[in-house]
Design a protein around this nucleic acid. Structure first.
Lengths: 206, 206
DNA sequence: ATGTTAATGTTAGTTATTTCACATATTTAT
DNA sequence: ATAAATATGTGAAATAACTAACATTAACAT
């Protein structure tokens, strides 16, 4: 029933609705949403229907209710603790990214193989990779962001899976498949850029 | 004919085939590819067919030929110059990311609104945002990576479009639509993480 | 040479996703 | 109270994306 891009679409609804909320709107129509997000209004209604978000036959949807429902769907009752594995430039950037916390995501630690990067006293400590399994088990970490060098990616992923992590956001150029133990979502920045370049070059030619 | 995810898939083929190449393989079968990438072999063959990659009825595909063809499709004849707009942590991480250059992508400059970040002498200079339009026109920049704060995202995108940039990889939390002037591909890291969290939590419940 | 095998290339079929279209319900106006 | 207007909710239709199946052809063995 719930399909692949649906949660990402839900998150887009959420962003838009929060924006509308700050502008003082109380109600919204599926048409409003479809216009700004460039999808059909029936898809909006279908998504809402699928998630049990219900409106009034006239009068549209109540923004507060939708937002509450979306947070409920996403399970936003408790703060999600996330670790960052690999504290190179990208890893560190993500560790300090300010956009997570207001969505209830807290980066609780970074991990690195390089002892010179370790700094346990910090606000968000960087610990040595050896301590990862223990940390994950103790703090019951379910989600990790992986930004390690390509060469150690496989090994790191195995380590994460064995430690009990259930989901990995993989920024490594290697594309990993999800397994029974661990769900992997891959973000390949180089590929995204190459894809964009392809599209732009193609338009130029046409 | 060529559908949305096809180029990204092509890039995955490329990665895999380069790997096989380093292992000494000369030939590959659609089955080999489908196994590792977990798609059907007929999709591999269909993709290849769509892109004019042709094999032998027995004997499979010649790896060198596929790779050459893929590079040809992607237009990898000349180095793509890319700028990074917004040199916060993520912007700087991307400016220094080592994975681009071997794919023929060169980050030629960063831009920032903050004068204290400007450093023109560096290997990859950071210039003030005011100089962006001129720079883009002079160096014929077509692609930009946008990592500015949310508040100035819209304005920055307009500036890029007006300067002649044709494609923007947007790391801002605001989702922009592509227009006639500029193609925007959005990467929302927070959403990706929230999506992953949703999947993992759901599995736990099931 | 001829048959057998094994992989491609391609058409038909399937599944997934999105949109259309309209009956239904709810508000507003008269 | 009744009618008109309007937005939801939903099943059917359309589109897109992927897979299965197989006829075709090239290599190899006999």
């Amino acid at each position: 029933m719930t399909n692949k891009g649906q949660i990402l679409r839900l998150l887009n609804y959420k962003n838009l609705l929060k924006h509308l909320q700050t502008l003082g709107f109380k109600k919204v129509f599926s048409d409003n949403i479809s216009d700004t997000l460039e999808i059909s209004s029936s898809l909006v209604r279908k998504d809402f229907g699928n998630f049990g978000i219900t409106g009034n036959r006239k009068g549209g949807y109540d923004i507060d209710s939708i937002l509450a429902k979306i947070d409920e769907i996403l399970g936003k009752d408790e703060i999600q603790k996330v670790i960052v594995v690999g504290t190179g430039r990208i890893g560190q950037a993500l560790m300090n990214y300010q956009g997570f916390i207001k969505e209830g995501i807290q980066i609780v630690a970074g991990f690195d193989n390089d002892f010179s990067k370790v700094s346990e006293g910090e606000d968000i400590p960087i610990l040595h990779l050896d301590k990862l399994p223990e940390f994950v088990k103790e703090k019951n970490i379910k989600i990790a962001i992986m930004c390690v060098p390509q060469l150690v990616a496989k090994h790191t992923l195995d380590m994460l899976a064995n430690s009990g992590v259930g989901g990995v956001l993989n920024f490594t150029p290697i594309k990993f498949q999800s397994s029974n133990e661990v769900t992997v979502n891959n973000i390949n920045i180089v590929h995204e850029l190459e894809n964009l370049i392809y599209i732009v070059n193609k338009q130029k030619t046409t």
